[in-house]
Design a protein around this nucleic acid. Structure first.
Lengths: 139, 139
DNA sequence: TGACAGTTGCGAACGATTCTCAAATATATT
DNA sequence: AATATATTTGAGAATCGTTCGCAACTGTCA
């Protein structure tokens, strides 16, 4: 699973003529392993913890490279630094517990359809969208 | 209309024990007049154009004051500086034309309901939400 | 009108992100 | 395997939006 992801990341980079350096490989592995929504600093720490010498500048550069290759998605919530997640998953939106900060994922076909309908009615097509629910646990 | 808004803003501030200074009055008028989605810099320029001496720091301070009084809403799109809009309107979401940058508003009761349902199913209630459609005109 | 807490403007500080540039290094080529 | 060359790296400076600190002002209420 994780190995598949890492391989997919690497070959996509090679295909795009982007060199797979030591630091990029480390970041790819960290990203492939992440099952949460880490930001650049968290990724830097994880890479370092995994024994790789990487700088923050490189983390950012790699992230935008991967994003423009369509391999990861940047998701930025209210005020926080941007977070990243692998793009090889089913599309979903996010729900943020305002008390704990926990980020959950959800997907609803009906909402997706309604959005497309609304845009179409106004003569537009959706390029991308962002839906975030800031929620609190019901007591 | 605009006068009503200005008065509503002012009395809300007074009620909250916040002083209505010259610069705040100017900003209130600018905000009440705006029918678009200006950011802090735009508001500063408009206030200055209206002949009021205001500083950027005061613009920001006033904006967060007004926001915490619930009089205006801060809406921040991808990467851009935060924008603000009067809160005395029917709730709506935003649609951004990725080519022109134009911001449009829309509202759909069905989407609102679905969001609440989804949150409820997971044991949460929605505190606020953010829905943005980044769109392109259909040729 | 005075007194005083609330506000202002300036510039410094901040946090996230990007850039600059010389030194290091993947990769294609021998 | 050694070389040539175009990429990539790290460190720190730079940028952008936004907030802060503080001394000088100014609404407001008595």
């Amino acid at each position: 699973m994780i190995e598949d992801r890492v391989r997919a990341f690497e070959s996509a980079l090679r295909r795009a003529g982007v060199r797979v350096t030591r630091q990029r490989a480390a970041l790819l592995r960290v990203l492939a392993t992440a099952d949460d929504h880490p930001d650049a600093t968290a990724l830097l720490e994880r890479a370092k913890a995994a024994g790789a010498g990487v700088s923050l500048a490189t983390v950012y550069r790699t992230l935008s490279e991967l994003e423009s290759q369509g391999l990861i998605l940047k998701v930025s919530f209210e005020g926080e630094p941007a977070r990243y997640e692998p793009a090889d998953q089913r599309h979903h939106d996010h729900m943020i517990d305002v008390d704990s900060g926990e980020v959950m994922e959800f997907f609803d076909e009906r909402i997706e359809r309604l959005q497309a309908e609304i845009a179409a009615e106004m003569g537009y097509e959706i390029i991308r969208h962002r839906l975030e629910l800031y929620v609190r646990k019901v007591r």
